[in-house]
């Protein structure tokens, strides 16, 4: 298994390089422009100067390799320097990946925004998994019971109603009518005592619930379907016939086997936590990674989007590997050698 993991990681290096090249080419081909959001009062000659100052005058391939050098060599060194306080080489003149819109290092922006994304999106994911797995198990075990029907109905609503709508609905109810929860997330808020903790809970409540509903609906559907498949298998009948307790049958044998497709769904979802939730972050002004990505795309901030996408790609590759390894743990019949 370890050798398999090591080999997969090695293979993923060229994969990641290919991904980064394709993404860079894609962003370069896209017809949006970093000066698009400037007022029309700024004349074309000035716009051209701005483009040149961003390095857009150089050929595509040179810009790609510059980015690669900045991202793979300069950025890790800069982070290392910040952590250790050491000076490595000519750090004064080492160019970091600078966002075009803010003209500040992209990694600083990401680090600044990671906390709120992890809090809100991460928490919503945990909530979603905690709700969805038991919900799926019970729904399947008591198929077509009232519980199952209600669960089905709610989860259908969960993925057929887009978050731009549920988010707004919650704001109208809880912020405008009832006035219980703040509609705007305060990213500078620091938790230091019970009061500030309670405020943090309140400001996280709505975005977390919106996202958790959307995620839980999907995961619970996969969980239920997979449980249903396994409940009718022969091994279940055998186990019951042998007199194994019903709890053990369901929770140990069936659940374990049913988790295989669900693990994929959950593992594929983890990188998206980092990616943030574009719509929900916008509605509640959580201003995390998702909001960063969308403003980057809108203003065609290539260094920013490229870096975010690349980190995203790394996470996808890693979590796909984790999912594959988990298959092996859950089902000993799957072997990777």
């Amino acid at each position: 298994m370890l050798r398999y993991a090591a080999r997969r990681l090695l293979i993923s290096i060229p994969t990641l390089l290919a991904i980064s090249f394709i993404v860079f080419a894609l962003l370069d081909l896209a017809p949006s422009d970093p000066t698009a959001n400037l007022p029309l009062t700024i004349p074309p000659e000035v716009r051209e100067k701005i483009r040149l100052s961003l390095g857009l005058g150089e050929p595509f391939i040179i810009r790609y390799f510059k980015w690669l050098e900045q991202f793979l060599i300069n950025e890790p060194l800069a982070v290392l320097e910040q952590m250790t306080g050491l000076t490595i080489g000519d750090s004064e003149n080492r160019l970091r990946v600078l966002s075009w819109a803010t003209r500040s290092p992209v990694t600083d922006l990401i680090v600044e925004r990671l906390p709120q994304t992890l809090w809100v999106v991460g928490m919503s994911y945990v909530v979603a998994v905690v709700i969805a797995v038991p919900l799926g198990v019970i729904s399947a075990y008591r198929q077509y019971s009232l519980f199952d029907q209600i669960g089905t109905f709610i989860s259908m609503l969960g993925f057929s109603i887009p978050t731009f709508f549920t988010g707004l609905l919650l704001i109208v109810i809880f912020s405008v009518w009832l006035g219980w929860l703040p509609s705007i997330y305060d990213t500078t808020h620091v938790v230091e005592d019970w009061d500030s903790f309670w405020f943090q809970v309140k400001q996280m409540a709505m975005p977390t619930m919106v996202l958790a509903l959307a995620n839980a609906s999907q995961i619970s559907r996969f969980m239920r379907a997979s449980m249903l498949d396994n409940l009718t298998q022969d091994y279940v009948r055998t186990a019951r016939a042998k007199g194994v307790r019903e709890r053990t049958v369901v929770l140990l044998h069936v659940l374990r086997n049913s988790l295989i497709p669900v693990v994929t769904v959950i593992a594929l979802g983890v990188p998206t936590i980092f990616g943030g939730a574009i719509v929900t972050e916008q509605i509640f002004r959580v201003n995390g990674i998702g909001a960063l990505l969308i403003t980057g795309i809108e203003s065609n901030d290539i260094p920013l989007v490229q870096t975010l996408t690349f980190i995203f790609a790394i996470l996808i590759v890693v979590f796909n590997l984790i999912a594959d390894l988990l298959y092996g743990v859950l089902d000993p019949r799957i072997r990777y050698d």
């Binding site: 394709i22 993404v23 594929l268 996408t309 790609a313 996808i316």
Partner: peptide, 9 residues
């Protein structure tokens, strides 16, 4: 993995 990583917009 490549398709998962592609930014859709």
């Amino acid at each position: 993995e490549l398709f998962l990583a592609l930014p859709i917009l």
